[in-house]
Design a binder for these strands. Structure first.
Lengths: 237, 237
DNA sequence: ACCTGAACACCGTTCAAGT
DNA sequence: ACCTGAACACCGTTCAAGT
């Protein structure tokens, strides 16, 4: 802080010791959302978190919407970087889909509060489907499949099926983690409203099964199915 | 309006000729969101839309969050009602899944602006998975499958796979419809940013295929796959 | 007792006034 | 020329003052 160059007054509450920068603003927003959830993210609160005047943020980002897009971009690019390193690696297309799926899942679980944003922000183009919502990502995906012998049409069909699969599974998985937690504290972690299950005998009887978490196994199983689906559409169409 | 009974002063801008009611408030909110999108929905604007004092809404709904939950509930219950009528109908479990899937898709396409809310509002319990997010719905689903010979565990697994499938496909389908449209008008409906596709030859080359819409066929194909998946998990496990 | 609307504590963002 | 912070046009919600 008192390093002689920055004339800023108060120290930031968080990790931002020096000059404000677009990257620093966006990174702070990701941290803030990870910590407190989307609902708490406010331009003014982010300013306080960074230890700067709230208006200073507007010098690096045009407004709140652009900031949210940038937050999504950070998470999306994280996975992109992981996958780019493997681009040249040998391997079949199904091994590629497998790696990509688990990379995206890793990012979603690392930022469960951000992922719903990845899923629902209006994409820049209608064919940019969440969560693979950057042109670079789509390019990489399609190129890999084309390189594996897919026709253009087949590669696009695989892109569509793959994104649907990822979105459904990951959105449900992160939403089960307890995203938000902002309203009043839940009554008790055990029996969540068992009392009002009076008229629902089947649900009541399966309460134990419904509460068990098999996310990882179900994800893998659905992924296997998806790969089979893509393989079938490849030979079929 | 001037039907002699209601003493209200100004006529509502929309269809609300008589006494304010919880149902009327929620219904107006659904209409408003269908027309203007989630971002525009405000307690004050909803009051204006109903032609009442904004504070009057609070007499029928505890707050904004509760209103949003109620909006989701309306869409969810629409489908529920359709399916309940068919509960006693004969038919195999896969015909049931088929009907239910298309019923939910119909609701999503009827309210594309509301569906992202159905998908992302934190559920009342972690095992209430969007878009089948009411206990009554889960009860009906599980009961039907149990009735078709599924074990409890198998029925729950089918419930999980089915909700993931629906959520991924429908969220992507409605988001492609052009949900929002609130920011500045798009430049042109044709070539969406073809200019910046310089470094992305594969995407550029597949622009036509990427723009084509095969939602209905893809939904059906994925649904067939899901049914096969469930059938396999039933004989397998 | 019920309802209204002024008031409060916030927002995102603009822009004039300072340096 | 650059940056700050007062000010504007909104929010959701409370609550005292009216009927």
């Amino acid at each position: 802080m008192a390093d002689g160059l920055t004339g800023a007054g108060r120290p930031g509450t968080a990790a931002s010791p020096r000059q404000l920068t677009r990257g620093r603003v966006v990174q702070a927003a990701v941290e803030f959302v990870d910590k407190h959830g989307m609902r708490e993210l406010t331009m003014r609160r982010l300013g306080a978190y960074l230890g700067v005047d709230p208006m200073a943020i507007y010098r690096h980002v045009p407004g709140r919407d652009a900031l949210l897009d940038a937050v999504v971009g950070v998470v999306v690019d994280d996975v992109l970087e992981v996958m780019r390193r493997e681009e040249a690696e040998p391997g079949t297309w199904d091994a590629y889909l497998e790696r990509l799926a688990h990379a995206v899942r890793g990012a979603a679980l690392a930022h469960p509060q951000v992922f719903p944003l990845v899923a629902t922000r209006p994409p820049a183009a209608p064919w940019l489907r969440p969560p693979l919502r950057s042109v670079r990502w789509v390019e990489l995906f399609l190129r890999t499949l084309r390189g594996a012998g897919f026709s253009g049409r087949q590669a696009v069909a695989a892109y569509r099926a793959f994104t649907s699969f990822l979105l459904g599974h990951l959105l449900l998985e992160v939403s089960a983690i307890g995203v938000d937690t902002s309203p009043v504290d839940e009554p008790a972690p055990t029996d969540p409203g068992v009392g009002d299950l009076a008229g629902f005998p089947t649900v009541a009887g399966l309460q134990a099964e419904l509460t068990e978490d098999h996310s990882a196994a179900e994800f893998q199983r659905a992924l296997d199915d998806l790969v089979a689906h893509v393989a079938a559409m490849r030979t079929g169409a």
